[in-house]
Design a protein around this nucleic acid. Sequence first.
DNA 1: GAATCGTGGTG
DNA 2: TCACCAAGATT
Length: 355
Amino acid sequence: MKTSQQIQAMRAELLDWYGREGRTLPWRIRPEDRVAGVAADPYKIWLSEIMCQQTTTTAAAAYWHKFLDKWPSVQDLAAAPRDDILTAWAGLGYYARARNLHKCAQMICTEHSGLFPDNEAGLLKLPGIGPYSAAAIAAICYNEATNVVDGNVERVISRIFRVQEVLPKARSEIRKLAATLADPARPGDYAQGLMDLGAHICKPKNPKCDLCPWQIHCAAYGSGDMIDYPKRKPKATRPNRYGAVFYVEDNGQIWLRQRPDKGLLGGMMELPGTDWSTDKPKVDTWLAQAPVQSNWQRVGGEVVHVFTHFTLYLTVFIGQTKASHFDISAHMNTLDNYALPSVMGKAITHAQAMK
DNA sequence: GAATCGTGGTG
DNA sequence: TCACCAAGATT
């Protein structure tokens, strides 16, 4: 634990560092502008926070601009067809975020008069807004003195206090320790400053301790084992799965279907294909699951795609018969306007390269 | 608490 | 090459 004098010093040092070295992000209000009375737009902050979940800020920023250009207000987003949102989200991953984004926008419009709740507890009730996002939005938009704890903060705090418990069990302890430091006077700037510190100074592998405003306060720096924190439970090895997809092209269009709304890639488009099994089946087993009978031609090589909890090996088959023979014209789609996840983009590229 | 849920970058 | 990681939420 830190003394109150130490805590006061740490808050001041972090805010000073943030004012000098804090990163500019497209949705961020700089401290000097905030003092001048510029307020953050909850819609823009909410959008950024959802997109930033488990996603690099670089990738999130590109989509953030695209979404704001397409849907400048929460009303615009709520009124959009869900599939348009999935299409715009395609490639960013974790598609439940896009589904919840739409639900949340609609709830804001139908149950909250088009306004975001102005406090952490209210925000937490909305779909897709969990403990981190609720705390962050409340702090950044409404200056509520929340305790914002993301992956960056977990790393910084675990090093400052040299937390011995492993994640995720250490989470409650880290939260309590973080709360002792959180700044009640400038919650938004403090939260963003602490996350910046984690992202750019207190990095996982090569922390720049020489540039850290909290160096003298850091227990891990003192013992030289920063890199060992946060301690984590070892992860299980990632299993493999195997499947096949079937590629039918006719007149510039491709046979696609929509996945069920729930689960992996929920609501996204895909090539028709087989189940993804843990053991690699024989080709005949795959062909028996083909959507239609055809002289399917196996494409050389496999498409390898790494998901969070398994690696997928996809074998691609190309149909030799024209789509018109299958009476599937209703399934034929151009690629432009559909929510195509990255894995299916890879499979299509693989098929087209072999033609 | 543990599993599920994407993707691209990196050392 | 490959395990790790990125402003987590949901069940």
